[in-house]
Every structure is written in C-alpha cells, then in structure tokens.
Design a protein around this nucleic acid. Structure first.
Lengths: 167, 167
DNA sequence: GGAAACCGCTTGCGAAATGCAAGCAGTCGT
DNA sequence: ACGACTGCTTGCATTTCGCAAGCGGTTTCC
C-alpha cells in the first residue's frame, strides 16, 4: 500500500482505482459522508458490513496519506481521534450518486438501503451541491446557508431510510 | 470470488464494489468500452497497465458470471472468443464519466489519458446517451441512429487522444 | 476511589488473492 | 510445413485479507 510506488498509468480511472479499488475504502467514505461517522470505533461498529479493526486502521492510514481524510485529536476527549473529510472526498458525492443509481438498477439491492440512492438520483445536481455544502461546513468549517426547509440533506436521507423500515 | 457467497449487505455501493471493487475489473470494462477491445489477447496487451493472463482470465470469468459480459466464439476464427458488453455494463458510462471527472480534478492524471474524461464531462448526458447507443449497436446488435457529424463518439475520443500526443 | 466500559490501534497467524513466467493444444496465415 | 498466434492453465512466490485476541491508556459510573 505504499504510495512510493509509481502509478500504473496516468489514466483517471486507473488512478481512482488506486485510491479506492478495494473492498473497504469507499465504504468507509460512504459511512463518513452519509452516516456522519467520524471515530474509529464508530466506523468499525457502525457499518453494516463489519470491517476488521486492523483493516480499518490500514485503510484510514491509506486515506489520510492520500489526503482523502485528515485526522486530529478530539479536544474534549483525550484518546479520541476525529477523522474529517477533505474537499477531495466531499466531491465524491456525485460519484457515489452515479454508483448508487447504477447499483440500484442492476444489483439486488435492499429497499431500505437503496432509498438514499433514489433520493440522491431524484434530487440531482442541486441536491448534491447542497449536501456538499453541508459537508464542507461540518468537516472543513466553511459556513453554509441554512437548509431551505430547515432539514439537512443527511437528515432527510436518514428520515427516508427510517420510513422504509416501518412501512 | 464465488458468487455463491451471500452479499455483505444490500447497499448499492457495497454491491457495486462486489462487482468491481478490485484493481482490474473496471479497467477491463474501460478498455472494452473506450478502447473497443473484445478479444483476450487484445485485452492482455492493449491495456496500458499490463494485466497478467491468469488474472485476466479470472476476471473475465467473474464478469461473465455476473452478466456484465457475455462470451461467444468468433464465427470467422475457430479459436477466437469474442467478449461483449451487456446492457448493465454499457450503463456504466455515466459512472465512468463521474469517476473520470473526479480523478481528473484530484489525481495526477496525464493529459493524454485524461482527454477522454474531459470530453465526456463536457459532452454531458447527451453525449453519454449517444455513446451508449453506439455500444448497444456494436455489442447487442441494436441499430443506432448514425452519428450526426459522421463520426462515432469513440472515434472522436480517440482522435482527441491522438491530437494530444502530437501537440 | 475502584471497577468496568471504552479509546484507537497492534499483533499473530491462517487463508485467500495477486502476480510472474512458462507453457499447452489447437488454428491460422504463408 | 512451419512459425506465429489463439484463449487460457499451471506452478510457485509474494502480498493482502481477515479473524481473534489483546494492549496501554482514558473516561464513566456508582
């Protein structure tokens, strides 16, 4: 996993795969973006897929090295570490949306977990922009306009998820 | 790699990763979609990254199992095998475009290989639709309207690539 | 103030995937 | 007839993955 190796090629798709062409990196970013998870144990226990702690540690190191994440210590809790998204990882939102749209159409997704992908698809670029602005505020400290309807995009996605469970 | 295993979760992004969450599957699809490669040796030698033949064989088997590709024998050459895209893999075009856009902005791409991503980004949905229609004709035998300017999308992408080389 | 829960993360080890090189049986062009 | 080419396999070394246990320290709760 050393970034000292030369790249296989300068193709954008190949380089993207060198960043998250494994089974876990993109899921970690997904949980941070859509789930709002920011701590090690949160990421370890919060994901539905169940990642082993050594692999989580290795991926987090990898993503920090690539400047897809930053890490700092929690001011209010000496042994906690806070992981933050960077602008690069925030801009994965459209990629996630495209992947979600494709997966929802062609793979055996479950309805509860696909609802986010559907809303993201329906919301289009405008919703993505709003979501990314919220992430910038949360992770980079860049103030964002308050949500027009009083609900953050993430809250709305989560609400929709809960609604499918009781349906 | 057996598909007999249960899925880790029904999340669209997770399921997508189970399809091409490795270092090669998406590159093979890239070379078929953008490079027009359809034979084993073509794929082995044509990709800039250099895949080993045993891994190529394993990935092709995997993709065929998942119905991302189909294979048949070449009518005009008894020992040749032709691999074709399916509708599912053709619809990866928007995903590739999103990935290319992101990679071009955040990763150290080389200009010659990024030109396709740029044209795809600038062309937008309309260009993607035209490209997918051409792929359907080529791989699924579904007739497509002739290109308005007499040039296929792939030809235009390739032309632009050549132009960056001599610049 | 003591015990239990929790913090990020490491270690040890078996299992699986990856990657390189060589090669195989059959087919094709010349 | 001969050499180049076809898709693909085999053998083997290296790397990565993944489970389970646990470590030194911090925080929480009673």
């Amino acid at each position: 996993m050393p970034m000292t190796d030369a790249h296989r090629s300068g193709c954008p798709i190949n380089l993207s795969l060198e960043v998250f062409g494994d089974k876990w990196s993109l899921l970690i970013l997904r949980d941070m973006i859509f789930g709002g998870l920011r701590h090690f144990r949160e990421l370890q226990n919060g994901s539905r897929e169940g990642i082993a702690s050594n692999i989580l540690a290795s991926r987090l190191r990898h993503l920090v090295d690539l400047r897809m994440l930053t890490k700092r210590s929690d001011p209010g809790h000496k042994q906690k570490t806070i992981y933050s998204l960077t602008e690069a990882s925030i801009q994965l939102v459209p990629v996630m949306a495209a992947l979600g749209t494709w997966g929802r159409r062609w793979l055996p997704v479950t309805e509860d977990l696909a609802i986010r992908a559907r809303l993201l698809e329906e919301g289009g670029q405008e919703l993505w922009d709003r979501f990314m602005a919220e992430l910038r505020e949360e992770h980079l400290g860049i103030p964002a306009a308050p949500p027009p309807d009083g609900k953050t995009v993430r809250a709305r996605l989560h609400e929709a998820y809960l609604a499918t469970l009781t349906a």
